[in-house]
Simulated assay, not measured.
Amino acid sequence: MNAGITKALIIGGGFAGMTAAARLARQGVEVDLLEIDPGWRSYGAGISLHGSTLRVLKELGLIDRFMEEGFASDGVEMRGADDRILVTLPTPRVAGPDIAGGGGIMRPALAKILQEAVRAAGVNVHLGTTFSTIENREDGVWVAFGDGKPQRYDLAVGADGLYSSVRAKLFPEAPKPRFIGQSVWRAVLPRPAEITTVTMWMGPNLKVGLNGVSPDLAYLFLTEDKEVNDFVAPESFVETLRALLRKFPSPIIQAIADQLSEEHHVIYRPLEQMLLPRPWRAGRVALIGDAVHATTPHLAAGACIGIEDAMVLAEEVARASTVDDALAGFEARRWERCRMVVENSARLADIEIHGGSRDEHAAIMRQSMKTLAEAI
C-alpha cells in the first residue's frame, strides 16, 4: 500500500537518512535525498555496532559488504584498570547463527556501503543543499530547496542530526542538546592481538575501550569527566590522550599510550544528549535518528537506533493505508526503545561521573543489550 506515498523527501544523508532513502526507494517510492555536505563525507573514527544493527544490514542485503570492511565479534569484556576481568556480557546473535553478536567498522567505510545502496536503489541525491522552506498543506508537504520553487511530497523525513533544522522548524520549543559532564576521545590504531572482542577498562573518572573495526585495526574510545564544556586545542590532542591513557596500569593500554601519534587520527568531542518528547511528527513530516533521540556512546547504540528508525518507518509506510497511520505506527514502535537507550546511557554516565555502583553499571548494560537484541 505504501500509505498512499509515491514521492518522499529525506533531509539529511547520514546513516539514518541513507537507510530510510534506500529502503523506501526499494518499496517503489520516488525518493529525493538532501545532504548539505557537497562531499557527502562521514567524519569520525570507528563506530561500534550492535547485533540489531547487523540484523538491519542483513535485511538490506549489505551484511557481506560489512564483513568485508569491518570486524565482528561476540561478547563484551568489562575489566578493571589493571586488566582484571570484572564481568563478561553476552551479545546474542540476533542477525543469525552465522553472524556474531556485534562488531565495529570505520565510519567512512559504513557511509560508503550505505551510499552505494542509496545510489543502487535509484534515489535522487542532491548534495550541497538543504531545505529553505517546509510547509504542510492539505494536499501534501511542500518543500523548497536550493534556489528552486517548492515541490510537493507525500512525506518528508528530517534526518538531519543533533542540531536538526527540521526539528527547529517544526518544534521551536523543543529541548536543546544538553552537555552531560563527560567528553570522549577517539583514535584508530593497530588492533592488539589480545583484543578479540569489545573490551572496556573501568578507571576512576575514566573509561577506555577497544573494538575491532577491520581485521587489522581497532577503534579506541576514552570517556573523561569534564565539569565544563571548555575548548581543547587540537594540537594538544595526542599528548592529552596519552596522559589520560597513562592512568591505566593495564599493559595493553600502556603499550597503546607508547605508540600513540598524530597518524592515529585522535579526535575529541564533548558529549551531549537530547530526547524530544512525543510527538515526533507534524502533519506529513517525521523526525528520525539524532534529530529526536541523540544519545551518548555509553551503550554504543546511537547509530543503531537511528538505522532502526529508518527501517521501522519504511515498514509502517508499507503496511499502513494512510500517512498519518504510518507515522503513528512508527512512533508507537520506536518511543520506548529509544527512550530506554537515551535514559540508560545517561544513567551510565552518571554512575561513571559520581563513582556509583559498578554492579548497577554492569546490570544496566546487560539489560540494555538484552532489550536491543529483541525484535524491533
Rank of each mutant, 00 (worst) to 15 (best):
G17M: 03
G17K: 01
M18G: 01
M18P: 06
A20E: 02
A21K: 12
R23H: 13
R23D: 15
L24N: 02
L24E: 07
A25H: 05
A25T: 12
G28M: 08
G28S: 02
E30T: 15
E30S: 14
V31S: 02
V31R: 13
D32V: 14
D32N: 07
L33K: 04
L33M: 04
L33S: 00
L34H: 02
L34S: 06
E35T: 07
E35F: 01
I36Y: 06
I36A: 13
I36P: 04
D37R: 06
P38Y: 10
P38Q: 00
P38M: 11
W40Y: 12
R41C: 11
R41E: 10
Y43S: 14
Y43R: 15
A45G: 14
G46Q: 13
G46C: 04
I47P: 03
S48N: 15
L49C: 08
H50V: 05
G51P: 13
S52P: 07
S52Y: 08
S52H: 09
T53Q: 01
T53R: 12
T53G: 02
L54S: 04
L54V: 12
V56P: 04
E59R: 14
E59H: 13
L60W: 04
L62V: 12
L62T: 03
D64H: 01
D64I: 03
R65A: 15
F66M: 00
M67K: 12
M67I: 05
E68H: 04
E69R: 06
S73E: 11
D74W: 02
D74L: 11
V76S: 09
V76K: 12
E77D: 15
E77H: 07
E77C: 06
E77R: 13
R79V: 03
R79D: 10
R79G: 07
G80P: 05
G80K: 07
A81R: 13
D82M: 04
D82P: 06
R84V: 15
R84P: 02
L86M: 14
V87W: 11
V87I: 10
V87C: 13
V87S: 15
T88I: 03
T88K: 12
L89F: 05
P90L: 03
P92Y: 00
P92R: 08
P92V: 10
R93N: 11
R93W: 06
V94N: 04
A95N: 11
G96Y: 01
G96T: 09
G96A: 03
D98A: 02
I99P: 11
G101W: 03
G103S: 00
G103K: 07
M106L: 15
M106D: 08
M106E: 14
R107N: 03
A109P: 09
A109N: 08
L110T: 01
A111N: 15
A111V: 02
I113T: 11
E116M: 08
V118K: 05
R119C: 10
A121H: 08
A121G: 05
G122Q: 00
V123N: 03
N124Y: 04
V125D: 06
H126M: 04
T129N: 03
T129A: 13
T130N: 07
I134C: 00
I134E: 09
E135M: 07
R137H: 10
R137N: 08
E138Y: 11
G140F: 05
V141D: 03
V141T: 12
V143P: 07
G146I: 04
G146R: 09
